[in-house]
Design a binder for these strands. Structure first.
Length: 840
RNA sequence: GCGAAAGUGGCGGAAUUGGCAGACGCGCUGGACUUAGGAUCCAGUGAGGUUAAACUCAUAGGGGUUCAAGUCCCCUCUUUCGCACCA
C-alpha cells in the first residue's frame, strides 16, 4: 500500500500537484484575508452559517460535508458580488467534554482547547473560506459571560423561574437526565435505574412565545418538513378550562378539555399521582398503603414507558368526590397513570362514552358511562358500546343544550361556563417550558446567589462572568464537581452582604447555541453581547445549514431567543434564519458515519491521496445537498479523474489561451464544431447558474461542469484554429475554472492564475452567458406517432409550424406508421416535437 | 394507529412547466498505449430482439385522464422520517 501511494505521488508530480496547490492557496487566502468580512461595505451583505460543530477534536467526512455546502454558497455569493460573512466557532461545553476529560485524567478546559486547535487545522486543510477573525467558543468566559447576561435579562422579564418537578434522576451520576438519555429506564452512562425525583430546577418560559413560534410567515425559505415538526411539537389546541369543586370544600379543581360538548357526560375525574392535591392526600394518609404504593409505583415508572399508548391504564379510587358545576353531578376522583401532570391543568374530566382512554379505564374499573352525544340515527346504547363514540353528533342528556349539534355546543357550553364564572376559553400547548438546569461542571454557571435573607439574588453585571473555577477534580466525585469548591460557592450576598451560596447548576448547552449566530456579528465586544448596529447590519442569517435532527431543539430554542432579543430591542428582524437548508448525512455501510459505529472516514486520508478539492467535488456531486450521500471509495476516484482532466486540458492549452487574449477583433469564419462549442459553453453557463443560484442543486451543477469539460475536449487540435475560433476556445477554457471555483476552489484559482489572471476568482464575477449563442443554426424535432418516437428532423429555428408538419409527414418511418390510418390531430411543440395522432 | 416524504439500470443519481426516460459519475465489456498505474485514450453498456436495423417492453404494482405521464388523478404495496394516552 505504502509503495503504491509513494509511487503514485511521484507520478503525479508531473501534472496535478494538488498537495502543493492546496497549501499555496490556503496560505494566500489567509494572508490576503479575503474571507474576513468587513462590517462596512458598498456591497450588499450575505450571512452564511453552518451549525457550529461540537468541539470533539475530530471532524470526519460526515461533518465536513455539512460545511462544504455552506462554503459553496459562500463562495458563490462572493462571486455574485455580496459582502459575505461565513464564521465558524465551537460548541464547547457539555457532558462529552467532561467525560472525555475524566477518561483521560485531564481537565475539560485543556482537552477542549486542544480539540479546537486540531479542528482548526482540519478545517484549513479542507479549504474553507471562514472568517477566522470571528471565531468563538462557548466555553470561553468572553462568550459565556454574555450568556449569563442574557439569563439575567430573561429573569428580569419574568421569563425564568424555578419549579419543583419530577425529573429523570440518576443517583449514581448525581444529575438530571434528559428523556433521551434514559434508555429502557436506565442511565445511558452508568446503567443504573433512573428514578423520578422531585427537584427544584430552572426553567425558561419558552411557552410564553408559543403562539409566535407557530408563525412562520417571517422566514423566507424553510423546509416544510421542519415547519411541520415545530408546529406539531408546539401542539396548539383550543379548549376550555372548567373548575370542578372538591366535594365538601371550596377548593377548585381546574380541568382542561378540548371537548366541552361532552361535559354533561363526565362520570369521573382522573388525576396523576404528581397532582398537588394527590400529593397533599399522600401526606394526610401515610398509612393508606394501597394509595402510597400505587402513587409511588407510578411516579417512579419510566416516563417514556408510562406515556406509551400500549401501557395498560391503571388507577385507584381516591375516596374523594368532585362536583360538576354544570349539573351538580357527584363524581369519583381517581388517581391514574394515564394523565400527565404537565399538560393542561394536570387534571382530566373523564367522559368514558366519548373518549377512548376514559372508556378503557371505565370498563376496567366498572365506572358508569353516560351518553351525551348521539349518532345522527340515535342508535348509540351504553350496553352495546365497544368503543368510545368520539365523532360529532346531536346533544342529549345535556339540559338546555339538548338537540343542538355537538360542534356548535362547544362554544355554547364554553360561553355558558364563562357567564357562570365556572371557567374560561383557553389554549393549551404541548410545548413545555425549557428545563435548563444541569448538575454538571462543564457548562455555563447560572449567575445566581442564594441568600438566606434575600433569597434568589442575581449576580450584578459588574461581577459577570461567574467564571468556572479551574481547581476542580473532575471525576473525583460523583457529585457536581462545583459542590467541592467551597471558596467558589461561598460568597457574600451582593445585596445584604450576609454569607450566601452560589447556584451550582450550570445551563443546558442548548442555551449557549441559542444566540451564537448573533455573537458572530460582533464577536469581540466586551461591553455588550453584540452591538445593535452590527446585528442589524448582518442579521438575519441569510442561509443557515444544518441537520434536521435539530428541528425541535436548537432551531426552536434559537427562534425563542431571537424573539426575546427582538423584544429587548437588541435586534430588529423577527427570525434568526431567513433560509434553512437541512443537509443529508454521509452514509457508509448502510449507516450514518459515526465514531461509535466505527465507519468513519478521516478526511486527512482522502486529502493526502487525492486532495481537498477531490473530496469536496465528490461529496457535492454524489447527491443533492438535502439528501444523504453514500460514501464510495470509487466515487472519490471519479471526482479525482475529473479534476485531473480539467488540469490537463488547461495546462496543455495555456499557450493558446494566453495568445487569444492578445488577439483583437477578427472576422474569420467559424467552423461548425466551434459553433457547437460556443453553444455548449453558453448553455453550460446558463444551466450552471440555474443549478447554483436558483435551485441550489450542486450535484447537477458539477455534472454540468463535467459535460462542459467533455465538450471542450472534443476540440482535438487547437493549434489549427483561426483567431476567431481560438477566442471561442479560450473563452470556454477560461470559463471552466470559474464554474469549478465554488466546488474545487484551489485548482480553480491555480488554473486561473496560470492563465495569466491577476485577480482572484471570488472577485471576478459569475460566469455570464450570451443569449445570442444559446441559439443553434438547426434544431432537432422529434416526431411521435400515437405517442411513440418514430423519427427526428433537423430544421431551421424560425421555421413555420405548417412547414414542420409537412416535413414530419414526409419522414419514411413516420409514413410507415401512419400507413392507412387517418390523421386525427397534429400537435407541434415549438422547438421540441411534432406529435401525430392517428386512428381508423 | 395518525401525518408527511419517497420508490427510476448492477450502483449514486438526472429528467426546470406533462413533451426524446436513464444526463453526469461509478462499475462492467472490448480495444489502444506502456513509466504495468488507484494512469491515460477510444468504443460500448436498461431488458428482449437483430449481422445491423426495425421493433417490443420498461420509472414499486394496478387502473384512469391526455396526441403525449417518471411527472396529474384513484387504489394497493414497500421504505424512510416525524408524532403517538397531550384530555
Amino acid at each position: 500500500m505504502y509503495y503504491k501511494i509513494k509511487r503514485y505521488t511521484w507520478r503525479n508530480k508531473m501534472e496535478y500537484k494538488f498537495n502543493e496547490i492546496e497549501k499555496k492557496w490556503q496560505n494566500i487566502w489567509r494572508e490576503k484575508g479575503i474571507f474576513n468580512a468587513p462590517d462596512k461595505s458598498s456591497k450588499p451583505k450575505y450571512y452564511v452559517l453552518s451549525m457550529f460543530p461540537y468541539a470533539s477534536g475530530v471532524l470526519h467526512v460526515g461533518h465536513a460535508s455539512n460545511y462544504f455546502i455552506g462554503d459553496v454558497i459562500s463562495r458563490l455569493k462572493m462571486m455574485e458580488g455580496f459582502n459575505v460573512m461565513q464564521p465558524i466557532g465551537y460548541d464547547a461545553f457539555g457532558m462529552p467534554a467532561e467525560n472525555y476529560a475524566i477518561e483521560h485524567n485531564s481537565h475539560p478546559r485543556l482537552t477542549t482547547e486542544e480539540n479546537i486547535a486540531a479542528m482548526r487545522i482540519q478545517f484549513d486543510s479542507m479549504g474553507f473560506g471562514f472568517d477566522w477573525s470571528r471565531e468563538i467558543s462557548t466555553c470561553r468566559p468572553d462568550y459565556y459571560r454574555w450568556g449569563q447576561y442574557l439569563f439575567k435579562k430573561l429573569y428580569e422579564k419574568g421569563l425564568v423561574y424555578r419549579k419543583k418537578g419530577f425529573q429523570n434522576w440518576c443517583d449514581k451520576c448525581q444529575t438530571v437526565l434528559a428523556n433521551e438519555q434514559v434508555v429502557d429506564g436506565h442511565c445511558w452512562r452508568c446503567g443504573s435505574i433512573v428514578e423520578q425525583k422531585e427537584l427544584e430546577q430552572w426553567y425558561f418560559k419558552i411557552t410564553e412565545y408559543a403562539e409566535e413560534l407557530l408563525d412562520f410567515s417571517k422566514v423566507i425559505d424553510w423546509p416544510e418538513r421542519v415547519i411541520t415538526m415545530q408546529k406539531n411539537w408546539i401542539g396548539r389546541s383550543e379548549g376550555a378550562k372548567v373548575d370542578f369543586i372538591l366535594e365538601g370544600t371550596n377548593e377548585k379543581i381546574p380541568i382542561f378539555t378540548t371537548r366541552p360538548d361532552t361535559i354533561y357526560g363526565v362520570t369521573f375525574m382522573a388525576l396523576p399521582p404528581e397532582h398537588p392535591l394527590v400529593q397533599k392526600w399522600l401526606k394526610e394518609e401515610p398509612d393508606n398503603k394501597e394509595l402510597q404504593d400505587f402513587c409511588h409505583k407510578v411516579i417512579n415508572e419510566d416516563k417514556v414507558l408510562r406515556s406509551a399508548e400500549e401501557t395498560i391504564k391503571e388507577g385507584i379510587f381516591s375516596g374523594r368526590y368532585a362536583i360538576n358545576p354544570f349539573n351538580g353531578d357527584r363524581i369519583q376522583i381517581w388517581i391514574t397513570n394515564y394523565v400527565l401532570m404537565d399538560y393542561g391543568t394536570g387534571a382530566v374530566m373523564a367522559v368514558p362514552a366519548h373518549d377512548q382512554r376514559d372508556f378503557e379505564f371505565a370498563l376496567k374499573y366498572h365506572i358508569p358511562l353516560k351518553i351525551v352525544i348521539q349518532k345522527p340515527d340515535m342508535s348509540l346504547k351504553v350496553e352495546e358500546m365497544q368503543e368510545a363514540y368520539i365523532e360529532p353528533g346531536i346533544m342529549v342528556n345535556s339540559d338546555k343544550f339538548n338537540g343542538i349539534d355537538s360542534e356548535e355546543a362547544i362554544s355554547a357550553i364554553t360561553n355558558w361556563a364563562v357567564e357562570n364564572g365556572w371557567g374560561e376559553k383557553t389554549v393549551s400547548y404541548r410545548l413545555r417550558d425549557w428545563c435548563i438546569s444541569r448538575q454538571r461542571y462543564w457548562g455555563n454557571p447560572i449567575p445566581v446567589i442564594h441568600c438566606p435573607h434575600c433569597g434568589i439574588v442575581l449576580v450584578p453585571d459588574q461581577d459577570l462572568p461567574v467564571e468556572l473555577p479551574d481547581n476542580v477534580q473532575v471525576g473525583r466525585t460523583t457529585k457536581n464537581p462545583l459542590l467541592s469548591v467551597p471558596e467558589w460557592i461561598n460568597v457574600p450576598c451582593p445585596k445584604c452582604g450576609a454569607s450566601a451560596k452560589r447556584e451550582t447548576d450550570t445551563m443546558d448547552t442548548f442555551v449557549d447555541s441559542s444566540w451564537y449566530y448573533a455573537r458572530y456579528t460582533d464577536p469581540n465586544n466586551d461591553k455588550e453581547p453584540f452591538s445593535k448596529e452590527l446585528a442589524d447590519y448582518w442579521l438575519p442569517v441569510d442561509q443557515y445549514i444544518g441537520g434536521i435532527e435539530h428541528a425541535c431543539m436548537h432551531l426552536l430554542y434559537a427562534r425563542f431567543f431571537h424573539k426575546f432579543m427582538r423584544d429587548l430591542g437588541w435586534v430588529k428582524c423577527d427570525e434568526p434564519f431567513a433560509r434553512l437548508l437541512t443537509q443529508g448525512m454521509v452514509i457508509k455501510d448502510g449507516a450514518k458515519m459515526s465514531k461509535s459505529k466505527g465507519n468513519v472516514v478521516d478526511p486527512k486520508y482522502i486529502i493526502d491521496r487525492f486532495g481537498a478539492d477531490t473530496l469536496r467535488t465528490f461529496l457535492l456531486f454524489a447527491s443533492p445537498p438535502e439528501k444523504d450521500v453514500d460514501w464510495s471509495d470509487d466515487g472519490i476516484i471519479g471526482a479525482f479523474r475529473f479534476l485531473k482532466r480539467v488540469w490537463r486540458l488547461i495546462d496543455n492549452n495555456l499557450e493558446f489561451i494566453k495568445r487569444s487574449s492578445q488577439l483583437g477583433e477578427c472576422s474569420d469564419s467559424i467552423s461548425e464544431i466551434i459553433k457547437v462549442l460556443r453553444y455548449e459553453t453558453h448553455y453550460a453557463i446558463y444551466r450552471w447558474r440555474e443549478d447554483c443560484l436558483q435551485r441550489m442543486q450542486f450535484n447537477t451543477a458539477i455534472a454540468t461542469c463535467m459535460e462542459f469539460l467533455n465538450a471542450i475536449l472534443k476540440i482535438q487540435e487547437p493549434e489549427k484554429l483561426n483567431a476567431a475560433e481560438l477566442k471561442i476556445f479560450a473563452f470556454a477554457c477560461a470559463t471552466l475554472p470559474k464554474m469549478l471555483y465554488p466546488f474545487a476552489p484551489h485548482i480553480a484559482e491555480e488554473l486561473w492564475q496560470k492563465m495569466g489572471n491577476k485577480n482572484m476568482l471570488n472577485d471576478c464575477g459569475l460566469p455570464e452567458y450570451d443569449e445570442r449563442f444559446l441559439m443553434l443554426d438547426k434544431i432537432t424535432y422529434v416526431i411521435q406517432v400515437n405517442g411513440k418516437l418514430r423519427g427526428k428532423i433537423e430544421v431551421e429555428p424560425d421555421i413555420k409550424e405548417e412547414e414542420i408538419k409537412q416535413i414530419a409527414l414526409e419522414v419514411d418511418n413516420v409514413k410507415r406508421h401512419i400507413s392507412e390510418q387517418d390523421i386525427k390531430k397534429i400537435i407541434v411543440v415549438p422547438g421540441k416535437m411534432v406529435s401525430i395522432a392517428v386512428g381508423k
